[in-house]
């Protein structure tokens, strides 16, 4: 799943799905800067197609979208690749949606607006866990 770089470390592959282009536009370079491989989508059907083609280490998805919403994406990801970590981001956070996300297997639930550092920390934590697991 991960990509080899320099023969020593592995790059995490991240898929970002949000129907607001500004979110994808800002998150992609921020993750690239940290050395991650990033693909972004603004419609859930294209993202789902891509998820069926290949697997990712982390999926970051918005909750409320046209077509398949974040919960459906979460279910699809977990069905296709249970080891993929899913982070839900939403501007309409409620306790109920957060609970449901966790019940369906989401790793984290982040309310918009959020600081870039918060979500980077979240991804770094996953990276550390995976490295720890690999060792």
């Amino acid at each position: 799943m991960t990509t080899e770089t320099n023969g020593t470390s592995k790059r995490l592959r991240i898929l970002i799905l949000d129907d607001e282009p500004i979110v994808c536009k800002r998150l992609k370079p921020a993750f690239q800067k940290q050395g991650y491989e990033v693909e972004t989508f603004t419609d859930s059907s294209s993202a789902m197609d891509r998820l069926k083609e290949t697997s990712f280490d982390i999926v970051i998805t918005d909750l409320k979208m046209e077509g398949a919403d974040g919960m459906q994406v979460l279910s699809t990801v977990k069905a296709l690749a249970p080891e993929t970590r899913v982070i839900i981001i939403t501007g309409f956070a409620t306790l109920e949606t957060a609970k449901e996300s966790y019940r369906k297997g989401a790793l984290d639930f982040v309310a918009k607006p959020f600081k870039l550092g918060d979500i980077l920390d979240c991804v770094r934590k996953i990276e550390q866990e995976q490295r720890g697991g690999a060792q």
Binding site: D18, E20, I22, V23, R26, L27, G91, F92, K112, P113, F114, K115, L116, I119
Partner: peptide
């Protein structure tokens, strides 16, 4: 602060 780039936000944030 959002204007300064501190937050990742979307249109819903502005409306709210």
């Amino acid at each position: 602060r959002a204007l300064g780039g501190e937050y990742i936000f979307d249109r819903a944030y502005l409306e709210q």
